[in-house]
Amino acid sequence: MNIMSETAAEKVLEKKMNEISYKMIGEAVSVYYGDKRALYDVGLKVRENTVTALIGPSGCGKSTFLRTLNRMNDTIEGCRVTGRIVLDGDDIYDPSIDVVELRARVGMVFQKPNPFPKSIYENVSYGPRIHGLARTKADMDAVVETSLQRAGLWNEVKDRLHESGTGLSGGQQQRLCIARAVAVSPEVILMDEPCSALDPIATAKIEELIHELRANFTIVIVTHSMQQAARVSQRTAMFHLGNLVEENDTDKMFTNPDDQRTQDYIMGRFG
């Protein structure tokens, strides 16, 4: 009897865990660069507190799609986005949306670590300062420390917070950029090939970090490394020639994908 009730409880728990909540939803997203169409009606739901990896051959539109999620495409001359993207139910392309605030909620980490040529402290405190997130010096110190802790960098830099961020190693610089993104308490973090300039050890540290950040943030990562997608993500989306061809559990994607194009791509076969 006891066993019965335990399994019943487990079922309820499982059901609860199976209730998926979507942080961002893209519907029929198309992107044009001038006359050139780069994305075709992409529909992708990004799960909350989940790492979603975007994979696919170069030029298939991964970065383009990623940039639509925080309107980074707005900064590109001649770029036009159609369709709908919502963040917690709100259309982020609605005219009433403040883009600066949007980018604080949906942060971004780029391929090449790009710290400001300023101190480590200033790199991290810059965002919170312009968003008015810390009132006193003590508040700011706390934000900087927490952010560096979360980026797994605190122990390495705590004694040299006022040295230049550009003096750090590549892997440390990338973690500094992650600390900078985390400092404004975003809800979603977008990463575009964040490890492509890093060696395997620095890459492993970033991947471990992604794994930890997932508890507090929703993460979308573009990667050209299939193994990285397999290691860090729970969901994987495969793009091909501007189309989303498959989105699936990462476990399924790497053992038995549904789409032939995904198969060929991840197995390294001629498509």
């Binding site: 299939m226 193994q227 397999a230 790497f254 053992t255 038995n256 994908p257 198969q263 991840i266 197995m267």
Partner: peptide, 9 residues
Amino acid sequence: RQPVAADLR
């Protein structure tokens, strides 16, 4: 090779 999908199977 870190095989995946059909190759791994």
